[in-house]
Design a protein around this nucleic acid. Structure first.
Length: 422
RNA sequence: GCGAUCGUGGUGAAGUGGUUAACACAUCGGAUUGUGGUUCCGACAUGCGUGGGUUCGAUCCCCAUCGAUCGCCCCA
C-alpha cells in the first residue's frame, strides 16, 4: 500500500498554507468590495449536472471526470468546475426570486479533473470564482472582467494579458457554426482526428486546435466576429466601451473559444506574460452563459462568471518574484528553568493565549540555551524567562529579541504588560 | 490518453556490481550549570521510490509498478 498522496494531489504544508490563507483572505475582501457574497456548494454532485451543465462534447465530460457509483447506486461526480453547481443551487433555492438582482456570488474550493498532472495542473486543484446571475447589462461583463484582473493586481502582479472575444448569441453562433462546417467540410480528411469529430459536434473548437493551426484553411476560416448579428455586435462593443472607460487594456482574439459548451457572448482569458512561467500560461478564464440557468431547469436568466486557479496564481507570484507580506513570528516564547518554573510556565502560557497573545514554550526538555535557540528560530518577538530568581520574586524577565533589552515584570502584571508592548 | 527524462538521509547532492553509501546544510549533544551569534569537537541513511528478476553478490544491470518533471492534448 502506497503511503503517498494520490497522483495529482498535494499537501499544503505549514509555511505554504499561510500564503494560501493570505490569498484567500485578500480575494474574499476583494469580492466583498465588489459586493459578491460567498456560496458553498457540495464537492460532489449528480453526474448528470455536469453532463448537462458543462456539456457532453467537452473534454471535461468526455474524459476528465471523477465519476463513481455510490452505495445507493447513484452516479456521482467530483465537481470539475464551479459554475454548474452554483447555477444548480441558484435554481434549486430559487434565488432568482430575490428582489436583489443580479445575484452576485463567489466561491472557493477544490475541483477535480482526471488528467496527466504537471506543474500548474493537478487532479485536485483549487479555484476561486464568481458568478453574476440575472443581468445582461454589458456593464456586469466589464465588472466581472475587472474583478478577475484585480484578483491579480491586488497582489502586485504586473505581467498580465487579458484576451477577450465574443461568441455571439444563439443566432450568431448558429450562422457561424454553419459557416465553419461549410468551410472545413471540403478538407475534412486533412484535419486531425479530433477535429474531424469536432466538425460535427462543436466546429467552433477547431479554431483553437494546436495540431491544425497551420492548415491553410485555418487562416481563412470564418471569424465569429463577422457572423455576429447586430445585437451581438452592439453588445460586444458596449462591453469593450466599459472596459476602455475603466482603463482595462485587452486584446481581442477571435479564436478564443473556451472549452465549455455553455458560453455565449463575452468570453475572456487572463494569461501570464512573466518569463519563467511554465508552458501553461492561462491563469483564469470565464464568460457569459445566458442559456445555462434555463438548461438546468430555471427561468430564463442571463449569467456571467469566471474562475481562477490558486495554484497558477501562486506560480505567477513566484514567476514575478513577489513576496507576500505574511505575518510571521510568534509573539512570545516562554523559557523555563527547573521543574517548578516549568509548572508555572504552563499556567502563564495558558493565560497569555487566552488573552490573545501568541505564546509557546519548550516541550522537549531542552537546556536553557537550546530553548533560546528555539525561540530565535521561531522568530519570537519576546522571550519570557522564568527561573529560580524570578520565581522567588514572583516576577518574570521579558526580553525583546530584536533590541536585546530586558526588563523584569511582576507576574500578575505580565498579561497586561504583554498586551501593551505587542 | 501518448512520448521523453528522472526517483539516494530532514534538505541539497556525490557514488560504485562486492566488505564501513562521500560531502554540505539542518538538527541534537559537548566545549560554555541562566540568554539568541561565532568557532571547535562529536552524533546522525530501518540502507539508495516500491515489487520482482539476473548474479556467488545489486543502490548501481533487466522488467514491472508508483510518483515527479517536461512536451503533446486540453484547460484553471
Amino acid at each position: 500500500m502506497s503511503m503517498k498522496a494520490p497522483r495529482g494531489t498535494q499537501d499544503i504544508l505549514p509555511g505554504i498554507s499561510e500564503k494560501w490563507q493570505y490569498i484567500e483572505n485578500k480575494l474574499q475582501e476583494l469580492s466583498y468590495n465588489y459586493h459578491y457574497q460567498e456560496i458553498r456548494t457540495p464537492i460532489f454532485e449528480h453526474t448528470e449536472l455536469f453532463q448537462r451543465g458543462v456539456g457532453d462534447t467537452t473534454d471535461i465530460v468526455q474524459k476528465e471526470m471523477y465519476t463513481f457509483t455510490d452505495k445507493g447506486d447513484r452516479s456521482i461526480t467530483l465537481r470539475p468546475e464551479g459554475t454548474a453547481s452554483v447555477v444548480r443551487s441558484f435554481v434549486e433555492h430559487k434565488l432568482f426570486g430575490s428582489p436583489n438582482q443580479p445575484t452576485k456570488l463567489f466561491y472557493f474550493g477544490p475541483m477535480f479533473r482526471y488528467e496527466r498532472p504537471q506543474q500548474g495542473r493537478m487532479r485536485q486543484f483549487f479555484q476561486y470564482g464568481v458568478e453574476a446571475l440575472g443581468s445582461d447589462d454589458p456593464a456586469i461583463d466589464a465588472e466581472v472582467i475587472s474583478l478577475a484582473m484585480n484578483a491579480y493586481r491586488v497582489f502586485g502582479l504586473q505581467s498580465l494579458k487579458l484576451v477577450i472575444n465574443s461568441l455571439g448569441d444563439k443566432e450568431s453562433r448558429e450562422n457561424h457554426r454553419q459557416a465553419l462546417i461549410d468551410h472545413f467540410t471540403p478538407v475534412k480528411k486533412e484535419l486531425c482526428s479530433d477535429c474531424q469529430s469536432r466538425l460535427e459536434q462543436n466546429p467552433l473548437r477547431i479554431l483553437d486546435c494546436k495540431k491544425d493551426r497551420d492548415h491553410p484553411k485555418m487562416k481563412t476560416a470564418p471569424s465569429i466576429l463577422d457572423y455576429l448579428n447586430e445585437e451581438s455586435t452592439a453588445y460586444f462593443a458596449k462591453v469593450k466601451e466599459y472596459l476602455d472607460e475603466m482603463g482595462i487594456t485587452y486584446q481581442v482574439d477571435p479564436n478564443l473559444v473556451r472549452g465549455l459548451d455553455y458560453y455565449n457572448h463575452t468570453a475572456f482569458e487572463i494569461m501570464s506574460d512573466a518569463k519563467g512561467f511554465g508552458a501553461i500560461t492561462t491563469l483564469s478564464g470565464g464568460g457569459r452563459y445566458n442559456g445555462l440557468v434555463q438548461d438546468l431547469g430555471g427561468p430564463e436568466t442571463p449569467g456571467i462568471g469566471f474562475a481562477l486557479s490558486m495554484e497558477r496564481l501562486l506560480m505567477a507570484l513566484e514567476a514575478e518574484g513577489i513576496e507576500l507580506p505574511l505575518d510571521q513570528g510568534l509573539d512570545c516564547y516562554i523559557v523555563a528553568l527547573g521543574e517548578e518554573a516549568k509548572l508555572k510556565a504552563a499556567a502563564i502560557t495558558d493565560q497569555l493565549r487566552l488573552a490573545g497573545v501568541q505564546a509557546d514554550r519548550d516541550y522537549q526538555d531542552k537546556k536553557f540555551k537550546a530553548q533560546f535557540k528555539a525561540a530565535d528560530r521561531l522568530k519570537a518577538k519576546y522571550v519570557l524567562v522564568l527561573g529560580d530568581d524570578e520565581l522567588a520574586n514572583q516576577q518574570i524577565a521579558v526580553k525583546n529579541m530584536k533590541t536585546g533589552d530586558q526588563e523584569t515584570i511582576d507576574m500578575e502584571q505580565l498579561t497586561q504588560h504583554m498586551k501593551e508592548i505587542l
